[in-house]
Amino acid sequence: MRRSLLFVLLALLPLGLIAAAEVPPALDIPTTEAPTAAPQSLDAERVKRGNAVYDRYCISCHGVEGDGRGYSAPWLDPAPRDFTRGVFKWRSTPSGSLPTNEDLMRTLTVGLFHTNMPSWGVLGERNLRDVVEYLKTFSPAWKEQAPAAPIQIPAEPTNDAVSREKGGEVWTRLACASCHGATGKGDGPSGSTLVDDWGHKILPHDFTRGHYLKCGDRSEDLYRVFMTGMSGTPMPSYAESLSPAEAWSLVHYVQSLVHEEP
């Protein structure tokens, strides 16, 4: 039995280290990424490794060519992203620009709620950074456009009745209800006729069913959506028509539309 004790001790050693070392990657939206003038060249090593990650985990939906036509795609709703156009919904960057690496990392770690795109956090930071680099090979946009600077998100003011009321006025002024419906149920008059850039029917977000956005459920995530829009969808950016204070009020108003917990 003494030998077995030795075995156990040997195994406990690395285990102790492991227990101490598990930290989830911190992937907050950076607000200070420096703007770069020229398009960035790709890291060839990462691209190569990312190709392997993509082949194993992503092909079934996003397709060999990255065009969103994987073999599972025909029966998925919403449809998997077509990466060949270089159009992304979840960005911290202004409407029409490419997302930052951290934006893509966040999409991959958080996953897209209530779609078939799961969280890939299990794969660990190295593999995710590799596949992010590989995604950029699918569209010439990454060779042509320089990454834009993320928008500034000022600190959240107090969420009180005054702020919510002001947000309600903004909601009416900007006619969010025309798509999202008067009560935020996603049943506005033009809501049922919408299509995205790929011609897929798309429904406006239903705010009453819990506070989950597709990607993240923090107040900043909501703020970011109004100010950057969701490229490729009818959901516009309101950066031009909203002051930061108004945008925060709108966040508080939209949060108050929730009726049930998910």
């Binding site: 195994a11 050693l13 690395p14 285990l15 492991i18 227990a19 598990e22 660990g124 190295r126």
Partner: peptide, 22 residues
């Protein structure tokens, strides 16, 4: 059974898993 895994950012070694059971 208790089992732990640590990922390594390295070209040669990718992960270490260790465990004990009884």
């Amino acid at each position: 059974h208790l089992q732990g895994t640590q990922y390594v950012d390295n070209d040669l070694l990718a992960a270490v898993t260790a465990g004990v059971f009884g």
